[in-house]
C-alpha cells in the first residue's frame, strides 16, 4: 500500500489483490462491496483507514481490502480496535466480524465497546451459523434449527438479540442492513463511519452453504425498519418485542453531540513517552 495521500478513489480501488475464498453466493461479498462503496463515497484515504477483525469467514475481510488491517484473535477484534483508536484517534477504524466471533466468543467485548462509546464502526456479518467450522449453531441461530449433528434437536435456547442488547449497553448508533442490498447497506456503513462514537451495523448476510434451507427467503423477508427506537435504554423492551429481526435501516441514532468517548488529549511528546514506557515494559 502506498504511504502517500491517495487521490479520489473508486470503490474497486479499495480492493486488494487477494481474492476472496468465500463460497459462491456468500452474503459477505455484498458487505465487501458495500464497504468499498462507502469508503469511496466518503473519500477515506487508504492510509488513514484500518480494518480490524477476529476469526471466522467474515473476519477474512481485512485481507481483501487495500488499507491497513489486522486479523486478530477469535473474539478479540474490538479490544484490538479500541487500542488502535485510542492510540491513533486520527484513523478511521472499522471492525469486522461474524455473529460467533462478536456475540459469543467476543460477547463481553461487544457489551463494553457499546458502553465505552469509542469512535469505532463495528460491522457484524450475521449468518446465524459457525460457517468456518462447518455449520454449528451460533448465538443467533433459531432454537429449532436441527441441521447440525451437534444440536440434532436444535439449540433450544432463545436467540441473542444484537440490536436490543447494543441499545441496552449504550451504543450510540445501531443499524441493520442486508447483504443482498449492497447499495442500501453502503449508506448505513457510511453513516456509521461518520457517527462520532461507537456505531454498530448488524448485517444479515446469508450462508448459502450451511443455512440454505432457511435463509433463502431473507431477500423477501427484509423490510424497512419503521419503528425507530427512542434514544435510551428504556426502549429496549420495545425493540426486543416489536423487532422481528428483519427490519433494515437505522434503528437508533443518539445525538452525535452527546458523544462522550475518549478524546485525543495526549500531546505528541506525551504519546511518544508513553510508547517508550510500554516498549520498555514489554522488553522486561
Amino acid at each position: 500500500m502506498s504511504a502517500t495521500t491517495t487521490p479520489t478513489l473508486r470503490a474497486r480501488d479499495y480492493l486488494s489483490d487477494i481474492k476472496p475464498i468465500w463460497c459462491p453466493g456468500c452474503g459477505h461479498f455484498g458487505v465487501l462491496s458495500a464497504l468499498t462503496k462507502a469508503l469511496a463515497y466518503l473519500e477515506r484515504p487508504k492510509e488513514d483507514t484500518a480494518v480490524i477483525s477476529g476469526i471466522g469467514c467474515s473476519s477474512r475481510l481485512p485481507a481483501y481490502l487495500d488499507c491497513y488491517g489486522f486479523h486478530g484473535l477469535h473474539g478479540r477484534a474490538l479490544p484490538l480496535a479500541t487500542g488502535l483508536k485510542v492510540a491513533r484517534p486520527d484513523l478511521t477504524v472499522i471492525v469486522a466480524g461474524g455473529d460467533g466471533d462478536g456475540f459469543s466468543i467476543g460477547g463481553n467485548h461487544f457489551l463494553h465497546a457499546c458502553r465505552r462509546n469509542i469512535d469505532l464502526c463495528y460491522i457484524v456479518m450475521d449468518n446465524a451459523v459457525y460457517g468456518m467450522t462447518k455449520g454449528q449453531a451460533s448465538p443467533t441461530t433459531p432454537p429449532d434449527w436441527t441441521r447440525s449433528p451437534l444440536t440434532p434437536n436444535g439449540p433450544g435456547i432463545p436467540v441473542f438479540r444484537p440490536a436490543a442488547i447494543a441499545l441496552a449497553a449504550g451504543a450510540g448508533f445501531i443499524a441493520r442492513g442486508f447483504s443482498g442490498d449492497p447499495h442500501g447497506l453502503s449508506e448505513l456503513i457510511a453513516r456509521a463511519i461518520l457517527h462520532p462514537g461507537f456505531a454498530f451495523v448488524h448485517v444479515l448476510s446469508p450462508c448459502r452453504t450451511f443455512r440454505p434451507d432457511d435463509q433463502s427467503d431473507w431477500k423477501q423477508g427484509v423490510h424497512p425498519f419503521t419503528d425507530r427506537a427512542r434514544c435510551d435504554a428504556e426502549a429496549v423492551p420495545a425493540l426486543r418485542v416489536d423487532d422481528d429481526g428483519m427490519g433494515i435501516g437505522v434503528l437508533h441514532e443518539a445525538d452525535p453531540k452527546a458523544h462522550s468517548g475518549p478524546k485525543d488529549t495526549l500531546a505528541d511528546a506525551d504519546r511518544a513517552a508513553a510508547i517508550d514506557r510500554i516498549e520498555a515494559e514489554l522488553e522486561v
Binding site: A11, C23, P24, G25, G30, A34, K37, A38, A40, Y41, G180, D181, P182, H183, G184, S186, E187, R208, P212, D213, S216, D217, K219, Q220
Partner: peptide, 29 residues
C-alpha cells in the same frame, strides 16, 4: 451516492423471488 443509484444490480446467484430453494445456488453449477 451509491444508495441513490436507480438501477441496482440484483445478486446474480440470488434465488428468484418465486422459486427460492436451496438448489438455486451450489458449487457444481
Amino acid at each position: 451516492a451509491p444508495w441513490d443509484f436507480l438501477w441496482r444490480c440484483p445478486d446474480v446467484l440470488a434465488p428468484r423471488l418465486d422459486q427460492s430453494s436451496p438448489e438455486d445456488c451450489h458449487h457444481p453449477f
